[in-house]
Design a protein around this nucleic acid. Structure first.
Lengths: 192, 192, 192, 192
DNA sequence: TATGAATGAGTGTTCATTCAT
DNA sequence: GATGAATGAACACTCATTCAT
């Protein structure tokens, strides 16, 4: 085992165990065990369990940005509809291929109800996603590819649908994700 | 404190604490404390903590039925659109007025990942909601008030949007719930 | 259920549960449950759990007397050997047919190590059994059917063997009880 | 307190307390207290109370073997009778000097009624003792020092007597152990 | 006679954390 | 860098016992 690997081992083990058991039930003993180290060793890298969880939290949420999935500058008059559909489907597929991630995020979302700093970051993240869709739709309007109408509501509808499709998939509830998302997109592209 | 109230006190305290701390962190000590009784007294009414949680679970989920919120037999050709909109808004308002409920439900949803019986009931409940919307839309088609199109996808879109609006409201994320839901309804009423 | 039955129900249930679970693990809840009554009802008949156990103890040990199994006055010159053998075998058979009894007695024997009053009574009971055999053998000597020798040792050998045969049978250890007892008897009848 | 002693302290304390209070009443709190450590410290060495008791069980029963007390290969034609007598008396003396041991064993015997693995080991141990005596007597027959007769019954008589002498001594019942054992030996050496 | 309701004390067990090494 | 050893606090749970009714 090369030097510095321990740190990554801890994080990997923690992620896996949090996904399976949740934030509180994933104990330091289990994490240390899975990482192949002793319990106090964790304290060398993280000052407390909370610090470790905080690290995981930022690991997951700092990267979760709208522009990463829907890069506004690639949208043109011609590809707008297709790109919006494809980007959304790709995001869904990403989660589909990595269900652990979604589980962990879900655990943090619930835990956010008890920890303000998580709550703020989470709200900010989700809000930015809704805002992202709004920016995108306004861009569409400027491109003349989206009719007038309540852009805010449309953007929120997109965000809410996309977000909840993954939740339902995570829970194992059969949802025709492609069809639903396609329809949602075709709706916001049309007029009302 | 009048006799016979203890049982209800336990349930009320449990609900409040589960909402605040989650299923596992809400300890029997806390519940007993809040109920103003001793810990073993809980065991007089519930054989275990799990039994108590089970009771809460059924208390919340047995009543959560589509027909309660969207009574299909009241929908006519003339009121369809308005009723669908109103019923949805009323459901949202109900949760808005009782945010604790939603928090608890969320905790159960997360816990469902670790307890199969919850998972099944939960999936069943949510699935029935999606199916309910589908039945409603088919009814609308028969009334001639809804154009042809992918009814399943439309129904799921409705379900996903409505469900996630409440989640976002719960988290304190500003969502124009009325506008979004109204648009979603107007969409499924139109053609594609 | 006729009046006064409750008392007997308690005792019967207690005996059965003590046999199965031991003195301490047989809880008042279990006993009340098995007896079909409420827990506090037991307190109407017995002032405490200890009082109930005391009652059981005396129920079992007050009756356990040597003369009951080996009635000295029935022993004659002619039947001495046969009677001694038969009486012993009958005692063994009695326990064989009622293994619960032996289990309970065993539990009390162990518990006696912690409760002096049991200890004394127990020692007295077992000692009396040994003394009984001694009296019997002296009687045999007077009848001229037993040769001289260390009567005390012979009597104790009889007592120890008979007692331990039942213990081994209780534990489920295969012992040729009839053969062993017969030999022990034939031994004490002979000379050394 | 020197390092590494804790483990032994736990075992010693556990043995002492089990001897005095029995397996179930000897609580981890008591044991920890007596050992001068905290309760969770026990869990560092034993995964559960049951694991600790299992350890004690094997500590006591794995060493209790017939050959240890009656080494068959040392028995010759000339010393047979004396050796058999002496070995038995030595075993008795060992227990006499260490009455705690016998108490603990007794507690395990009772507990065996509720734990199969103990029951099996216990039956096996006691059976092997009876078998040991049988092997020894057959050896005696081959040496020509023991007359014909029911060897099995004689062996069992020896085992039962020896075993029960210690029990009675443990209970504090006066038994002429030397005389009884000597007679038992002289009996099996003779013919019937 | 008997019970529903409740409790204090205690059980085995787990956890995050500490500290000397 | 990392660990063996240990702990205080908490947890779910059980028990004998009490008391008003």
């Amino acid at each position: 085992m090369a030097k510095g690997d321990t740190y990554q081992h801890i994080i990997d083990s923690a992620l896996a165990l949090v996904a399976e058991y949740g934030l509180e039930k994933a104990s330091l003993s289990m994490i240390a065990n899975k990482a192949g180290i002793s319990k106090p060793a964790i304290y060398y890298y993280f000052s407390s369990k909370e610090a470790l969880l905080d690290h995981l939290f930022h690991l997951l949420f700092d990267d979760y940005q709208f522009d990463h999935y829907f890069p506004l500058d690639t949208y043109t008059k011609d590809n707008f509809s297709t790109l919006l559909t494809d980007n959304g489907l790709q995001l869904l597929q990403e989660y589909d291929e990595n269900p652990e991630l979604l589980k962990i995020i879900n655990h943090f979302i619930v835990y956010a109800g008890q920890k303000q700093s998580y709550d703020e970051k989470l709200k900010q993240t989700l809000t930015e996603f809704l805002d992202g869709f709004k920016r995108l739709l306004i861009h569409g309007q400027q491109l003349g590819v989206i009719k007038t109408g309540d852009v805010t509501a449309k953007a929120q509808l997109l965000g809410l649908v996309l977000d909840n499709i993954s939740s339902y998939l995570l829970m194992g509830i059969k949802v025709e994700s492609t069809a639903v998302w396609t329809q949602a997109v075709s709706y916001v592209m049309g007029d009302d």
